[in-house]
């Protein structure tokens, strides 16, 4: 285990963290600011991935495909918001979970009806298909560098939007005291619709970017929703900053668990025991981290409603 190997694994951890952040950012916005549990966030992620894959394949332009995927997904989200989510803002979380779970089932069947049950191809843009030589002995997939860059840009953009714009101020006002904000003349309903659309755009961006390195298939949204939920819980629900820090921590812990735990255990334990224990412990590292953080800080690292 030399230095290059460790650097590479750290980069991998960061890459995975940024990947999770793209999804968790939208989820935490909707949940934290609108106090609405939207399980269908994963379905918007799936919609983004499918649309981007199809557009990319037929048009050949990756950037165009990502853009169209975001626009189309925002449109879909607007329809869902008007028809369903808008009626859920004032209901309890259980009703929201049930309704948005229903949306997942509908979305999965709609995707199957349109694109069939088999996973579809999401080509990697040729310019980013190969590795880049970061250091002498360290080739690194260029596509993953793009994901890291996209994650950083989204983080900076969200920070500026929420903390330094008028819209962001309205969003924060609506979130901290809806009734008061309404009395002061803020159209909270509109603000919420904007936040929901923004969340959908981020989910679609995540889906479109994840497509080329993962399976674009029915249920892909549910598979990644679980680590994303872990991230927003650790970060403090509703806090974009929390989601950012937590995503990087989760990415690093998960990758380090998979990369370093098995060899470490093999060095100190009998081989058969280490072979059983290593993968099992690496698999739960993320959840152990969540348990520890929640014991120390029950509201997460950066509670949004402190």
């Amino acid at each position: 285990m030399d230095a290059i190997f460790i650097i590479e694994q750290l980069l991998n951890g960061l890459g995975y963290g940024f990947m999770l952040f793209l999804l968790a950012a939208g989820l935490t916005l909707v949940f934290g600011i609108m106090d609405t549990m939207n399980l269908a966030h994963g379905s918007l992620f799936m919609a983004g991935a499918y649309i981007a894959a199809r557009v990319h394949e037929s048009s050949g332009s990756f950037a165009g495909a990502v853009l169209i995927a975001i626009l189309a997904t925002v449109l879909i989200a607007a329809v869902i918001e008007i028809l369903i989510i808008r009626r859920l803002y004032s209901r309890d979380h259980l009703a929201q979970v049930l309704a948005t779970f229903g949306i997942i089932l509908l979305a999965d069947d709609a995707v199957k009806a349109i694109w069939g049950p088999s996973p579809i191809m999401a080509p990697t843009p040729p310019a980013l298909a190969g590795p880049v030589q970061l250091l002498d002995a360290l080739p690194y997939p260029s596509y993953r560098l793009l994901m890291i860059a996209a994650g950083l840009l989204v983080a900076i953009g969200l920070y500026l939007l929420v903390n330094h714009t008028r819209v962001g101020m309205l969003v924060r006002a609506g979130a901290s005291n809806r009734a008061m904000a309404e009395f002061m003349g803020v159209r909270v309903g509109r603000v919420f619709s904007f936040v929901f659309a923004l969340g959908a755009a981020l989910a679609a961006l995540a889906g479109a970017l994840m497509g080329p390195i993962s399976a674009v298939q029915i249920g892909m949204g549910e598979a990644i929703l679980i680590p994303a939920l872990v991230v927003i819980v650790i970060g403090g629900i509703g806090s974009v900053r929390g989601a950012f820090v937590a995503a990087l921590i989760v990415g690093l812990v998960d990758t380090a668990g998979r990369a370093f735990l098995p060899p470490l255990l093999r060095a100190v334990l009998p081989p058969s025991l280490a072979a059983d224990l290593g993968p099992a412990m690496a698999g739960i590292a993320m959840y152990v981290l969540m348990a520890v953080i929640l014991t120390l800080k029950p509201a997460g690292l950066f509670p949004a409603r402190a």
């Binding site: 991998n12 951890g13 890459g15 995975y16 997939p141 994840m210 598979a223 990758t255 993968p279």
Partner: peptide
């Protein structure tokens, strides 16, 4: 690896 794993970079 984990069942249902998405990221295989490690």
């Amino acid at each position: 690896t984990k069942v249902g794993q998405i990221d295989y970079a490690a």
